[in-house]
């Protein structure tokens, strides 16, 4: 498969983030790095995502949501010609309590892609504490390939 240029991947990633709706917008993600090795994304602290009264402990579910999103992004930037993509399954281990008001950093990559399926892995830590992972996840995605790429559909804002 032909190499995908860094410029293309960055353009796709920014598009994904800008055109994202709903939860993606609410998570206010910042794309920090994009390459064929994977993607790194920052999620600023958000009190809505906490479970405690003091709002310092993140709910596991938001970490799961973040992994699911960033896996999608990793596939989107590294696999060309995807017209749609659906999460098949997802496994997440919560490695320690996510107690901090620091930004959350996610690293995710696609470790195997076939015509129909992509396999992903990723991990999450609080900014500045890379040695203390808070969650790790793996997922598989069903890919639909077609003439209308997801990128074009998003650009035009039409249904794929």
């Amino acid at each position: 498969m032909a190499e995908i240029s860094r410029e293309y991947m960055e353009q796709v990633a920014q598009m994904w983030n800008a055109r994202g709706k709903g939860l993606i917008t609410h998570m206010a993600l910042e794309i920090e790095n994009v390459s064929s090795e994977g993607v790194r994304v920052r999620m600023p602290f958000n009190p809505d995502f906490c479970v405690d009264k003091d709002q310092t402990l993140l709910h596991g579910g938001i970490l799961t949501a973040l992994l699911d999103s960033v896996f999608g992004l990793a596939n989107f930037v590294t696999i060309k010609g995807i017209s749609s993509m659906a999460t098949l399954d997802l496994r997440v281990d919560y490695l320690r309590a996510a107690r901090s008001r620091a930004d959350v950093i996610v690293n995710a990559h696609c470790f195997r892609k076939t015509r129909h399926i992509a396999f992903n892995a990723g991990n999450i830590w609080f900014d500045g504490h890379e040695d203390a992972e808070i969650a790790r996840g793996t997922a598989s995605f069903a890919l639909t390939r077609g003439d209308t790429s997801l990128l074009e559909a998003m650009t035009k804002g039409k249904a794929s």
């Binding site: 596991g60 799961t64 949501a65 992994l67």
Partner: peptide
């Protein structure tokens, strides 16, 4: 969002 379903 799949993550919202998993969270719920």
């Amino acid at each position: 969002h799949g993550g919202i379903i998993a969270s719920f």
